[in-house]
């Protein structure tokens, strides 16, 4: 038993973030244990018409190269994935990504609710969802789906967020298992990693 009461049944980690989440994501990715056993699936709000640069910026300090998946690309253990610009990113039964150019949701494409909602559907109680700093309500409903399927929910401590609208919206609509600062999220992921060794 670890201090977070973890086990090795989890199959994926999904992270959502918007305004003010970049530094947090960089910190998490740069301190990720080598050989982290689960895929990390990220949906971060970004400029819709700038295709290049973001994944490179995230990769500079990341332990693992971050990639923007192609439509129908298989999800690999230990892969770190980022929703590409101007596409929604879903996960399908059978463990692969599907992209779409549907209408914006919460004024966003990619929308965090879509990535969180579809990963919840596929991984059910084997999923850990993390929602970071952000200026709108996108992601709150997705966190609710994760909780309802039995997954573990974590939001960034609102007082630490540059803009706390997003984690607060999630706290208002569903049960959040842990409210953590980014440093604690890093500790949490290290602890999680140990469960698989």
């Amino acid at each position: 038993m670890s201090k977070f009461n973890l086990n090795n049944s989890y199959k994926a980690v999904v992270i959502g973030g918007s305004a003010g989440s970049f530094q947090g994501v960089v910190k998490i990715l740069s301190q990720l244990p080598k050989g982290f056993p689960l895929p990390i699936i990220m949906c971060l709000h970004r400029l819709k018409h700038v295709r290049n640069g973001f994944v490179e910026a995230l990769s500079i300090k990341s332990v693992v190269q971050v990639t923007e998946p192609y439509d129908k690309e298989n999800i690999k253990k230990g892969g770190v994935y980022l929703a590409p610009a101007n596409y929604h990113m879903s996960v399908e039964l059978g463990n692969y990504f599907a992209l779409s150019t549907e209408e914006m949701i919460n004024n966003s494409r990619p929308a965090i609710d879509i990535t969180l909602g579809t990963t919840a559907y596929v991984y059910r109680d084997k999923l850990i969802g993390i929602l970071l700093s952000g200026a709108n309500r996108d992601g709150a409903l997705g966190m609710k789906h994760i909780h309802e399927k039995g997954g573990l929910t974590i939001v960034q401590e609102p007082t630490e967020c540059m803009i706390d609208t997003m984690p607060k919206a999630a706290l208002a609509v569903t049960k959040i298992d842990h409210v953590m600062k980014v440093d604690q999220i890093v500790e949490f992921l290290k602890e999680l990693d140990k469960q698989y060794r």
């Binding site: 129908k72 879903s90 996960v91 399908e92 039964l93 599907a98 779409s100 549907e102 879509i114 579809t118 559907y121």
Partner: peptide
């Protein structure tokens, strides 16, 4: 059709 988007539609 891909299931996730078909379902949303």
């Amino acid at each position: 059709y891909a299931m996730s988007s078909f379902k949303r539609r």
